[in-house]
Structure formats: C-alpha cells, structure tokens
Amino acid sequence: MRKLIMWNVVTLDGYFEGEKNWDLSFHELIWGNELEELSLTQLRSADMLVFGANTYKGMADYWTKAEGGDEGEVAKFMNGLPKIACSSSLKTADWKNTTIVKDAVAEIPKLKQQGNGDMFVFGSGNLSESLLKAGLFDEIRLCIAPALLGKGKLLFNSGIPYKKLKLLEARPLATGGTIVRYVPE
C-alpha cells in the first residue's frame, strides 16, 4: 500500500507562499546539497506525485522547461513520474503522465491501495488542508526556512482538527533550515 506524504517548505511563521502566487523566494534560504539530496531520495521512493490545480499548473510550467537545465536529475523524476492533478475545474492536463481527479478525498484512498511506493503532495495548500481534514496523510514532512514572512498563504489554516503527531526526525541543515518529519499517532 502506498503512503501519502506531504512535503512542503514553510517559513518559521508557517507560510508556504508569499502574498503573490508562486512567491517562494524564501526557498533560496534553505536550498543546498543536503536538500537536493533529500529531494532526490524522496523522488526515488515515489511512484506518484499529487498536486492541487494551481500547484499543478505552476509545476508543469516549470519542470517541463527544466529538463535540459541544471536540475536534470530532479527534472527527469518530476516529468517521468505518474501525476495526479486534483481539481474539479481543470479540463486538460498536458504534463505527461497526468490524470485528473475531481474528488481527491474520495479518490486518494483508492490510489493508495494500488501501489507500494510513496505518493507525495508537493505544495498544494488547499489540497493538503482537505487531505489533512480527511485524515489521509501517513506522514508530514516539512523544511522550515529560517525566515519570518509575516504575510502570505499559511500552510495550516483554522478548521484543521486536533491531531497528535509523533516526531520521526528533526534534522538541521547547513543552510539554517530544519527538516521535520511527523506521523499521526
């Protein structure tokens, strides 16, 4: 059975995006060899990537252009792995190996039963919130960037039910960021 894993980069005050769409400038604070290796390790364990509509569009635009660039190995995984775009409004998905799912909360449990690798949800704040509320995540992985953004889009909004988590790992990075991994108890 697949594990559903959330992966996000957040600021210390909980923002995963700035005030404008795709304002991810704080990612530069934590990027380095350690995070690149973690990214590759995660992608090697993945057999499916899951995105909300907005993140899907942005990732597709970025990664389809990155394959020949500096991010070659990561781009090969991002472009080659099967992808799920969760959206009730998305009509087409041009990024190769993509299937559109209209009701993520209903479909993700079925998809978890169909494989043995990891399913990663990257970014996708609204989708992550829905999947959290439904209790579908097997693990939450965050990289905390050493910054206070003060405004933008919070990863965890109000309305998420109380859930006790067990810490699996807390690992500082040379860049000043910290990787934390939790599982629901």
Rank of each mutant, 00 (worst) to 15 (best):
F156P: 00
N116Y: 12
K110A: 14
A134V: 08
D118W: 01
A106E: 14
L148G: 08
I100P: 12
K76V: 04
G52H: 12
E107Y: 08
S39Q: 11
M48G: 05
K83L: 07
N116T: 08
K102G: 09
K65Y: 07
L24D: 07
L12T: 02
L132F: 07
E17Y: 09
F16N: 14
P109C: 05
A104D: 08
E129M: 15
A66S: 01
S130G: 12
G150A: 11
A85P: 11
E73N: 04
K76C: 01
Q113V: 00
W22G: 02
S88H: 13
E107P: 08
E19P: 11
F120P: 02
L127E: 12
A134D: 13
K151N: 06
D61A: 06
N97A: 11
R44K: 01
G68I: 08
K110I: 14
S130F: 09
G135P: 10
W31F: 07
K151P: 04
M59T: 06
G117H: 07
G123F: 12
G18Y: 01
K112M: 06
V121S: 04
D61H: 14
M119C: 02
T55K: 04
S45Q: 15
L49Q: 01
T41K: 13
G115V: 03
W63T: 07
A93W: 03
C86D: 05
L81C: 01
D138Q: 11
S45M: 14
A66C: 03
T41I: 14
M119F: 02
L90T: 01
G69V: 10
L142W: 14
F16I: 13
D138F: 10
M119L: 07
D138I: 08
S45K: 15
E37I: 15
E37D: 15
Q114N: 13
K76S: 01
D61E: 11
F137L: 06
D138N: 08
K153W: 10
K20L: 14
I140L: 15
K133E: 11
M59A: 09
G80W: 04
G68T: 09
D118H: 12
S88P: 07
F122I: 08
W95A: 06
I144V: 12
F51N: 04
V105H: 04
G115R: 00
I144H: 01
G18L: 09
G150E: 02
K102I: 09
N126K: 13
A104E: 03
E28R: 13
P82S: 07
F156G: 13
R141M: 10
I140P: 09
K112A: 06
I84R: 03
G80P: 00
N97V: 06
D70Q: 06
D61W: 07
L81R: 09
S87T: 02
A104H: 01
L40I: 10
Q42H: 15
G159E: 14
A60L: 05
M119H: 05
L81T: 12
L90P: 09
N79G: 03
S158G: 15
W22I: 02
H27Y: 15
N97I: 03
F122H: 10
V105W: 11
E107G: 08
F156E: 03
L43D: 00
L35H: 01
K65I: 01
A93V: 01
G52N: 11
A147Q: 13
H27T: 14
G135T: 11
A93C: 03
A145L: 02
E139W: 00
L38Q: 07
T11H: 10
N21Y: 15
A53H: 15
G150R: 12
G69W: 10
C143A: 10
V101S: 05
K153P: 09
